[in-house]
Amino acid sequence: MLLAKIQKEHPNLRSYQEIGIAAYGEKAGVLIFAVFGIDLFGAAVIMVLLFSDSFSTIFDEVSPFYFKLFICSLLLLLNFLPLRILSISSFMGIVCTTITFLVIFIAGLVKTDSPGSLNSPMPTNLWPESWMDLFFSFGLFLAPWGGHAAFPEIYMDQVHPESYETCMNTAFSFSYTIDLATGCVGFLMFGFLIDDEVTKNILTTPGYPSWIAKAIILMMGLLPISKLPLACRPIITAVDGFTSAHHSMLRQSLNKVAISAVIFGVSVLVTSFGKVMALQGASICFTVCITFPVLFYISIFDKQLSYKDNTMLYSVVAVSVLCSVLGAAAVLVK
């Protein structure tokens, strides 16, 4: 919302990085690119891991390496599509997420014995068992909200930008409801046996109808395909700018190949979905989603903000930084 307010007043600012440069200068632009690049890059790696983990559970005779290679090769092709088409695919991602939750919920209802049943829930706890668990959860809570660096480009690409705020309210409210419901249902079904992906628990637990596994695999296949190119687009835009590739089709193509190759390489080296989620959420998402946008807003609208506004906004920044530090420390310790 704050990023869009900045763009409404300064329509020449078309990307997250340009907003940051307008707020803090050219030198800050490199740091801002590095941080939001890691955010989106981490989100892309998470999608690749989700895809390979899901398919490897069913096709255990096939190495996860080949699933990662397939999804990253497909990403390379999708990176050449315009943003308007990719936004349609993003809606497909929302549909996939919703269907996945419904499948998880139905799986819990049809199974009568634990683990994996809502009819016979596993033991759970309302409060974290330790402060470290609480801090670790900070990153997990915020990780689904990553990718804020893509929103300025989405705002500029909207046919009706005046509907942006309504779109954000609707999309985030819906996503939060689905995320919360999935977490609650998954914890009730598997308790302390819960894996870093509840879908992985269902795929490896006997007692479910065969169509449950097929539906989950289908959704977990379509979801990364719909989200990956959107996460990559701001990185591509920034890299094209750094390499002066805006007027060279060959250089733009090489940049797309390089980005897809790096995502593939990192996904092969990193295998822990949960830790990547938590570390990305704690160390990066707080910064990109909360700290930077609020600081940009304060800097650009400095003369229009009251003392009360500044106090509130700086308090939000302080809480965001604290959560980021505690969350990252907990991930590294665990």
Rank of each mutant, 00 (worst) to 15 (best):
Leu102Gln: 05
Ala213Lys: 15
Val45Ser: 01
Ile19Met: 13
Ala318Met: 05
Gly327Phe: 09
His247Cys: 11
Ser89Ile: 12
Asn255Met: 05
Glu165Thr: 08
Val288Asn: 10
Lys227Thr: 06
Leu269Pro: 07
Asp53Phe: 09
Leu50His: 07
Gly281Ser: 07
Gly25Asn: 06
Ile217Cys: 11
Ala261His: 07
Ile202Asp: 02
Gly116Asn: 06
Asp240Thr: 01
Val103Arg: 06
Gly116Leu: 06
Val185Arg: 00
Glu197Arg: 05
Ile236Val: 11
Glu129Ser: 15
Leu180Asp: 07
Gln7Ala: 03
Asn119Met: 12
Ala43Asp: 12
Pro293Cys: 09
Ala181Trp: 01
Asp309Pro: 03
Thr177Val: 12
Met132Gly: 09
Thr291Gly: 00
Tyr307Thr: 12
Pro115Thr: 04
Tyr297Gly: 01
His247Gln: 11
Leu49Asp: 08
Gly327Trp: 06
Asp240Gly: 01
Ile99Gly: 08
Asp60Ser: 13
Val30Arg: 08
Phe65Val: 14
Phe105Leu: 11
Ala107Glu: 07
Leu218Gln: 00
Val319Asp: 05
Leu295Lys: 13
Ile38Asn: 09
Cys96Phe: 13
Gly265Lys: 11
Ile99Ala: 13
His246Pro: 03
Asn125Arg: 15
Met312Leu: 14
Ser260Asp: 15
Met168Ala: 04
Ala261Glu: 08
Asn119Val: 10
Asp113Cys: 03
Val319Thr: 06
Ala150Asp: 06
Ala329Glu: 12
Ala150Met: 12
Trp145Val: 07
Leu3Tyr: 10
Glu18Ile: 04
Leu2Thr: 00
Leu49Gly: 02
Leu230Ile: 11
Thr291Asn: 03
Ala107Lys: 10
Ile300Gly: 01
Lys334Thr: 13
Ala4Thr: 06
Phe292Gln: 05
Phe192Ala: 14
Glu153His: 01
Ile236Asp: 15
Gly25Thr: 13
Ser315Ile: 00
Ala34Gly: 13
Pro234Trp: 09
Ser87Glu: 10
Ile38Ser: 14
Lys27Pro: 00
Leu254Gln: 04
Ile46Phe: 09
Val198Asn: 09
Tyr176Trp: 10
Gly327Ser: 06
Leu102Phe: 10
Ile85Arg: 05
Ile71Gly: 11
Arg14Gln: 12
Ile236Cys: 15
Ala328Lys: 05
His247Gly: 07
Leu222Met: 13
Trp145Gly: 07
Ile212Cys: 01
Ser90Pro: 04
Gly241Cys: 06
Met92Val: 15
Phe80Asp: 01
Val325Tyr: 05
Ser253Gln: 00
His10Lys: 14
Ile88Cys: 06
Val30Gly: 02
Phe80Trp: 05
Val257Pro: 04
Pro115Asn: 01
Val185Met: 04
Glu18Ser: 14
Asp157Ile: 02
Ser315Cys: 09
Gly274Thr: 05
Ile21Asp: 03
Lys200Asn: 15
Phe101His: 07
Leu83Ala: 02
Ile106Thr: 15
Val185Ala: 10
Phe292Asp: 00
Leu102Ser: 08
Val316Trp: 00
Val268Met: 08
Met122Asp: 02
Ser244Glu: 14
Leu83Asn: 02
Val317His: 00
Thr237Ser: 14
Glu165Met: 09
Lys27Thr: 13
Thr182Cys: 01
Thr311Ala: 15
Thr287Ile: 15
